[in-house]
């Protein structure tokens, strides 16, 4: 994976978020304050407008760090620091590499998930976006960077949040009543991995 592919991915992700922002906000209404789509859209539109400034020869780590900074400064709320941290950790794991090999990507995903867990004081199984990130990171570690497989595990992580009692974020107040709702952050994270897999499969 190189900077061009990263740009492709982020472009597609911004488009998918834009198309689905009302759905994301609606999901957030059931568990939170109904703005997750607005927040993600604001952040990824800002990312999108930064992309033309990124050159092919820039390191992936530089782009990932830029994305992290933009998300942290533009998104706010809970998802801003969480997504920001994920990109920051991925950037750190990719430092010094012009092309990211599978091994690097496995490590990057693992560290991203760990970063989210730390930042959110969260654990897998608590019905948040971490459930997608940790499922994908584990899958990558176990079976390698098989994009079809990773997309499936992202979806699995997302769908699993439906049956969970939410323990973090605004939904935590609901206790048992949070069961039956998919977590909005898990859905946006699924889109993130789905578009990543698309991009990578197209390049194969």
């Amino acid at each position: 994976m190189n900077t061009t592919q990263l740009k492709q991915w982020l472009t597609e992700l911004a488009a998918v978020i834009a198309d689905n922002r009302d759905e994301l906000s609606k999901l957030d209404q059931a568990l939170g304050d109904g703005d997750h789509g607005i927040n993600m859209h604001r952040g990824f539109q800002a990312v999108l407008s930064e992309l033309p400034n990124i050159k092919e020869e820039d390191e992936p780590a530089a782009l990932l760090q830029k994305v992290a900074t933009i998300l942290i400064s533009k998104v706010g709320g809970a998802s801003g620091p969480l997504y920001g941290t994920a990109f920051l950790r991925m950037s750190a794991a990719c430092k010094g590499k012009q092309t990211l090999d599978d091994e690097t990507m496995v490590v990057a995903l693992k560290q991203a998930a760990e970063g989210i867990a730390q930042r959110g004081k969260a654990a897998p199984g608590e019905g948040t976006l971490l459930d997608v990130w940790s499922t994908v990171a584990n899958e990558a570690k176990e079976t390698g960077m098989d994009w079809n497989q990773l997309e499936a595990s992202a979806r699995e992580g997302m769908e699993a949040t439906k049956d969970m009692v939410v323990k973090r974020g605004r939904g935590a107040i609901l206790g048992e009543q949070s069961v039956g709702h998919i977590d909005p952050g898990a859905v946006s994270s699924y889109y993130l991995f789905k578009t990543l897999c698309n991009t990578m499969k197209a390049g194969e």
């Binding site: 609606k26 209404q29 568990l31 939170g32 304050d33 109904g34 703005d35 605004r170 107040i173």
Partner: peptide, 27 residues
């Protein structure tokens, strides 16, 4: 309603109230 979505932050019946509702429309 958030100006950007225009959607009501929660739904209550004509004659309903909700105790303990969050300050952002959380349940």
């Amino acid at each position: 309603a958030l100006p950007q979505t225009g959607k009501p932050s929660f739904v209550l019946g004509e004659n309903e109230m909700e105790i303990g509702l969050g300050h952002h429309g959380e349940p």
